[in-house]
């Protein structure tokens, strides 16, 4: 795919930035029309650089860049609305979401719907106590966008509608099967929680949160392969209100 030479005022968020060459930053940004892009911010590490303060994760931006190669040159950055205030578990969860995007999306692969889901999860992470449901919906949409959407409202083999009060086991790459039909090694989840994920109405109780986390952890681990997420380490020290990024489901 060929990349345009010049892009003006594209909405975007910084997923990550690191020092690059003498005084520049290499910014990994996520945008609706161009997906993940690598941008070089020249001179952004200088003490007087105005860009440096803006090029922070979780900050809605308008980005302009030039150049058609794998790395383009950032030529402009503006704030696009007020800064999001992420704190506590919400902030640490934000790093988890960013790491997921860096690990699971390819550069220059446009995902407008996923960008929308990303903006939605950041908004959700600002809402203390509601971080986990927001993460579960994001994970569901991420898998869907990557082409690994989960079957949530029908049984895998029979195609029967999911019953809210029934317990299921989720078979990877297949879907839910009634728990009394075997498959005990796979994550258990009640029908009501499958349906809540399907309809994106995650009013989970404690059990629902645990089951949904187990299911998503398992499904995402299959995409990540051997290398675990580093951001999970951040949740190991948090004794209370453990976030969704720390799973109880175990890796597949």
């Amino acid at each position: 795919m060929s990349h345009p030479r010049r892009v003006a005022l594209q909405p975007g968020h910084v997923l990550h930035q690191r020092p690059y060459r003498d005084s520049s930053l290499l910014v990994e940004a996520f945008t609706p029309d161009f997906g993940r892009v690598g941008l070089v911010a020249r001179g952004a590490r200088g003490p007087r650089s105005r860009m440096r303060g803006l090029l922070q994760p979780f900050r809605p931006l308008l980005l302009s860049w030039a150049g058609g190669g794998d790395l383009a040159t950032l030529v402009g950055v503006e704030a696009d609305g007020p800064m999001r205030v992420l704190a506590g578990v919400g902030l640490l969860s934000g790093f988890y979401v960013n790491e997921l995007l860096v690990r699971l999306t390819a550069r220059h692969d446009p995902h407008p719907a996923l960008y929308h889901a990303y903006v939605a999860v950041l908004a959700g992470l600002q809402d203390s106590g509601r971080e986990e449901p927001a993460l579960r919906i994001f994970e569901k949409r991420l898998l869907q966008e990557l082409g690994y959407g989960l079957l949530l409202d029908r049984e895998a083999t029979s195609g029967r509608a999911i019953e809210p009060e029934r317990l299921y086991r989720y078979r990877p790459e297949l879907g839910p099967v009634p728990a009394d039909e075997g498959a005990a090694q796979y994550p258990a989840i009640h029908g009501r929680n499958l349906l809540a994920l399907a309809h994106e109405r995650p009013d989970f109780d404690a059990e629902g949160l645990r089951e949904a986390k187990g299911l998503m952890r398992n499904a995402i681990a299959r995409q990540l392969g051997d290398r675990p997420l580093k951001s999970r380490d951040l949740f190991q020290g948090a004794p209370q209100r453990r976030s969704g990024a720390r799973g109880s489901g175990g890796d597949a």
């Binding site: 922070q56 902030l91 640490l92 934000g94 790093f95 951040l234 020290g237 948090a238």
Partner: peptide
Amino acid sequence: FTAEGEATAQYISTVARE
């Protein structure tokens, strides 16, 4: 006062409270 600096502060504060 960067996102990473804030996350670091956040993490350390949980350790300190323990």
